[in-house]
Design a protein around this nucleic acid. Structure first.
Lengths: 192, 192
DNA sequence: AGAGTAACCAAGCAAGCGCTAGTGTAAATG
DNA sequence: CATTTACACTAGCGCTTGCTTGGTTACTCT
C-alpha cells in the first residue's frame, strides 16, 4: 500500500498519471489505462497508491509544491521595487504553469474530484501560494503602480494567467516571459 | 427520438441537465440521475435525446446562443464610443455568465466531452461570439484607450472574465456590472 | 544461505454504466 | 371512429468500472 511515501518510482508514475488526466480527464481515465501507460497491470497500481483518488491528490500536490517553491525563489532573488516583484511573480506563475503544465491543468480543472479530506489538505498549500500574490499586489497598489480593489485585481490577474493554458502555444513565437510582461504592462498605465 | 426539435419540455429538461452537469460534472452524471431529477425513468430520457452526448450539446448550444443574442443587443443599444462599447461588452459577458450560469460553466469546463461533430458545429457559434469581442478590442486599441497586442489583450480579458465563475458570489455586495467596470478601469489608464 | 521487502501478475467480483426493446396510455389529428 | 403522435413505463443486455485476492519474482541486507 505504501502510504504517502515519495519513492522515485511513485514520482514517475505520478507524472504519467498527470499526462493521462490532462488528455482524458480524471473521470474518463481508468485504472487500466493508467496501468498500461505505466507498463504494469492494473492490479499492481494499488501497490503504489491506495486508490484512484490518491493518484489525483499526488498529482495536484506535486504541482502546487513546485509552484510555491518557484514563486518563493523568484521573489527572494529579485529587487524590492514593487514593479519588479510584480513582473517576477507573473513570470514565475507562467514558468511553473508551462514547465509543469500537466499537473497544473489537473489542479485547475479537476480539483473538484478530490475527496473532502484531500481537498482540505491541499487547500492550505494553495492558500499559501495565493498569499504571495496578494502581498505583491498590495505593494503595487500602495506604490500607486496599479489601481483598483486588491481583491478584484488579484482575481482578475490570476484568472487571466490561468486561462492561458487554454490557448497559449509554447512552441509559438512568444515566450511565457513575454506573456507575463505584456499582462503587467496592460494593467500598469505608467509603463505605456 | 425527436431529432433536434425545441419542444418546451426538452428546453426544461436541458435546464435541469445543465444544473446536474455543473454539480457533478458531465462524466459523473448518469442517465439515471438525470432521469430522477426530471421526474421520469431513465429509459424515457431517450425519447427526448438521442444519447447522453446530445444532452450536453443541447446545454452548450442553448447557453452560447443566449450569450450571442445578449451581446449583440447590448452593442446595438449603446453609443459608438469605443470606451462605452468596451464596457457594454464586458457587462453583457458577465450578465449572461451569471443569469445563465449553469449552461456557461458547462460550456467552459465540459467542452472537451463533446464528440467531434457537435464540437465543430458549436465552434462556429463560439467563434461568432469571440469575433464581437475582437472587434470591440480593436476599436479600443485604435482609439488609444488601451495598449498592447490585440490578440493577447482579448485573451487576457476573456480569461479574467471567464474565471469569475470560480470565485464570484452574486449574492455578495458587488454586482456583475461593478465587476465589469472595475476590469475595464484596470486596463484603461485614462480612466484612473 | 536465509529473511525481508518492494514490485508485480492473473483472475475475478460486485456494482454501475449507457442504452435498447417492447408495451401502455392519453391527447391530438384525419 | 380510426390513427397517429408524444410521452412514459418495465426489464434487462452487454460491457466497463474501481478495487481485491492470493500468489510469484527479483533484489537487498544480514
Amino acid at each position: 500500500m505504501n502510504v504517502m511515501n515519495a519513492s522515485p518510482r511513485r514520482k514517475e508514475l505520478t507524472r504519467l498519471a498527470a499526462q493521462l488526466f490532462v488528455q482524458e480527464g480524471f473521470d474518463r481515465t481508468t485504472v487500466r489505462m493508467l496501468a498500461q501507460e505505466m507498463g504494469i497491470k492494473s492490479g499492481s497500481l494499488f501497490h503504489h497508491f491506495k486508490d484512484k483518488q490518491e493518484i489525483l491528490a499526488a498529482v495536484i500536490e506535486e504541482g502546487t509544491q513546485n509552484a510555491l517553491m518557484i514563486a518563493r525563489k523568484a521573489l527572494d532573488e529579485c529587487a524590492a521595487e514593487p514593479e519588479v516583484r510584480l513582473r517576477a511573480m507573473a513570470r514565475a506563475h507562467l514558468e511553473t504553469l508551462f514547465t509543469d503544465r500537466n499537473a497544473h491543468v489537473v489542479a485547475l480543472f479537476e480539483w473538484r474530484r478530490l475527496d473532502p479530506a484531500a481537498s482540505a489538505h491541499l487547500s492550505h498549500l494553495r492558500d499559501a501560494y495565493e498569499a504571495l500574490w496578494v502581498a505583491v499586489i498590495d505593494d503595487a497598489l500602495e506604490a500607486g503602480l496599479i489601481h483598483g480593489d486588491r481583491f478584484l485585481v488579484s482575481r482578475f490577474v490570476l484568472g487571466a494567467l490561468n486561462w492561458t493554458v487554454r490557448w497559449y502555444d509554447p512552441s509559438g513565437p512568444r515566450s511565457p516571459d513575454d506573456l507575463a510582461d505584456e499582462l503587467v504592462a496592460m494593467i500598469m498605465p505608467t509603463s505605456a
